[in-house]
Measured scan of single mutants.
Amino acid sequence: MKVIFLKDVKGKGKKGEIKNVADGYARNFLFKQGLAIEATPANLKALE
């Protein structure tokens, strides 16, 4: 799953980066902790 990092995550990505991560890791950790959001077209446009 492609995500946009909202904060730096050690070993995974830095704020503003778009990367592929495992679906479960994204849903169960990154999204719940507020560290990333899904890289949807609307979210990508908002990032610009």
Rank of each mutant, 00 (worst) to 15 (best):
P41N: 08
A26V: 11
K45P: 05
K32F: 08
L6G: 01
G24E: 15
K7V: 15
N43W: 04
K14E: 10
Q33R: 15
A36W: 01
K14N: 10
K2M: 15
A46G: 10
K45G: 07
G24R: 12
K15S: 07
Y25A: 05
K10S: 11
M1Y: 09
R27M: 12
P41I: 10
N20F: 15
N20V: 15
D8H: 09
F29P: 02
K12P: 01
A22T: 12
F31L: 13
R27A: 10
A42T: 11
K7G: 05
K45T: 05
F29S: 06
K12E: 12
M1H: 05
K19M: 13
Y25Q: 06
A46K: 12
K2R: 14
G13H: 13
M1F: 09
K19W: 07
L44I: 13
I18L: 07
M1P: 04
V9I: 09
D23K: 14
K10G: 08
G34H: 06
I37R: 04
A36R: 00
G11P: 03
L47K: 05
E17T: 06
M1V: 14
I18S: 04
V21W: 02
I18D: 01
V3Y: 00
L44M: 10
K12Y: 14
G11D: 08
D8P: 05
A42Q: 10
R27F: 12
I37N: 03
K15D: 02
E48R: 06
I37T: 06
D8M: 04
G24W: 15
M1A: 06
R27S: 08
G16K: 02
I37G: 01
E48H: 08
L44R: 04
G16E: 01
D8L: 05
E38G: 04
Q33H: 15
G11L: 04
G34L: 08
N20L: 10
V3D: 00
V3I: 10
L35I: 08
I18Q: 05
N28R: 10
F31Y: 07
T40F: 03
A46Y: 13
F5V: 00
I37H: 04
K2Y: 15
A36G: 05
D23W: 12
D23E: 15
K15E: 08
F5Y: 07
K45N: 13
R27Q: 10
M1D: 04
P41G: 08
L35A: 06
A36Q: 00
A39L: 05
F31A: 02
A42I: 07
L6W: 02
I4Y: 10
P41V: 12
K12S: 13
L30A: 01
Y25K: 08
G34T: 03
P41A: 13
I4V: 10
G34N: 13
Y25P: 07
A26N: 04
L47W: 15
L30Q: 00
A42H: 09
K19F: 05
A42F: 07
L44F: 04
N20S: 14
G34M: 08
V3F: 01
K15M: 10
K7P: 00
G11V: 01
A26R: 02
I18F: 04
T40D: 05
E17D: 13
A42R: 07
V3R: 00
K15A: 12
R27G: 04
I37E: 06
M1W: 07
E48F: 12
K7Y: 11
G16L: 07
G13Y: 12
E17M: 07
A46Q: 13
M1K: 10
Q33Y: 15
V21G: 00
E38M: 10
K12M: 15
D8A: 07
K10I: 13
L6N: 01
D23F: 13
F31R: 01
F29N: 07
G16I: 00
K45I: 08
A36D: 00
I18A: 02
G16N: 07
N20I: 15
A46W: 15
M1L: 14
K10A: 14
N43Q: 06
